[in-house]
Design a protein around this nucleic acid. Structure first.
Lengths: 189, 189
DNA sequence: TCTAATCCCATGCGATCCCATATATGCCCG
DNA sequence: CGGGCATATATGGGATCGCATGGGATTAGA
């Protein structure tokens, strides 16, 4: 079905030759961080590069989104993420307490958000509350999925992660990569 | 879809031998939670997305509904749920006490509710009492079925479920995954 | 005939669609 | 090598549509 339909095609059709390079590493995983505004109607634009990933991920008309279990943030992703959750439940016996609880915590909290023709979503009240979102959202790529944070809150979180980043950088340094790619603030973990 | 507007539910003996076993729950699974009001006549609107699921679940004009076995809530679903119950009973030895009890507990209290042209149902007194429903109902998607809770009661249940899942999750983490941001890195299919 | 359940229509609010604008980035061409 | 045109994304706002909800009309049941 791909309701992304009309408008979307325009947005994604570009993919010109020189983009290929970017695509090789950036199109199949959520990477980097972006901060977009929430407008008066509660809409937020999903970063274009994330949308591209969703497309490749077998995006079937919706973005799966739910409150992070251990942080004031939201987790989101496409089919790949959905299957993962499904698989987790599939392993548990029907009508077991364990399954019921997991079901409530996962299925019950999951929202299937539709992406409009302009690449935006509307965050339901419950989700916005969980992540304390009001004026803006910071999208953080995490590979198979991405998170949405309240900008300030993410800054805090990022500081905490700083130490680990140090370790990571050393590994990269050994490999020889230094100056960063593209895009934006180049801030990622 | 049958967006044909309100009434369209009437004669829907529509068949459906089990559709394609598509694994994406966008349309064939009950997900998310919604809270709707009960009006003066005792009617409640079933969330539109749930109705869509019921229609493709081989919904034959009625909604199977019965008191949850272990909670003050109601379980409901379409054909798929009915089959699942059958399967569950089939797994137990015939003539066992366990089976008898379950049969009575499940089949005995099952109500087949009709959905009116506007997508609403009327909950029988007995069911309303079991779940302490009065002014509003919280619909909770659980994949193959969904539950109906008294809003306040569900909040409690949700908190409980989430805290328990925290524990479950730690077990998963301990089993071979980084403890932090549960990066699903290497886990795609 | 009276009461209760069902049907049908009306309405309000929120969600969605579509178009317009702004800002950044790249590209072509002089 | 620099300026202007083309493209893409983000954002704003108006117009619409769908859904939840309410209430009157109608039918069924006692």
């Amino acid at each position: 079905m791909v309701p992304a339909g009309r408008r979307a095609s325009k947005a994604f059709r570009s993919v010109t030759s020189r983009e290929t390079e970017k695509r090789s590493w950036g199109m199949d995983r959520f990477v980097s961080t972006f901060t977009n505004k929430i407008d008066a109607k509660g809409r937020v634009s999903i970063p274009a590069s994330f949308r591209a990933v969703l497309e490749r991920d077998g995006y079937a008309g919706g973005l799966y989104c739910y409150p992070s279990l251990d942080a004031s943030a939201l987790d989101a992703g496409g089919e790949r993420l959905a299957k993962k959750i499904d698989g987790l439940l599939a392993g548990l016996p029907d009508y077991s307490d364990e399954r019921d609880e997991l079901s409530v915590a996962l299925y019950g909290d999951v929202q299937v958000l539709t992406i409009d023709g302009d690449g935006r979503i509307v965050l339901p009240e419950s989700l916005r509350v969980h992540a304390n979102l009001d004026a803006a959202v910071t999208f953080v790529g995490l590979g198979d999925k991405f998170q949405m944070w309240e900008p300030k809150a993410f800054e805090e979180r990022r500081k905490e992660a700083r130490s680990k980043v140090q370790v990571t950088r050393k590994l990269f340094a050994a490999g020889g990569r230094s100056s960063e790619d593209d895009g934006d603030e180049g801030a990622r973990e």
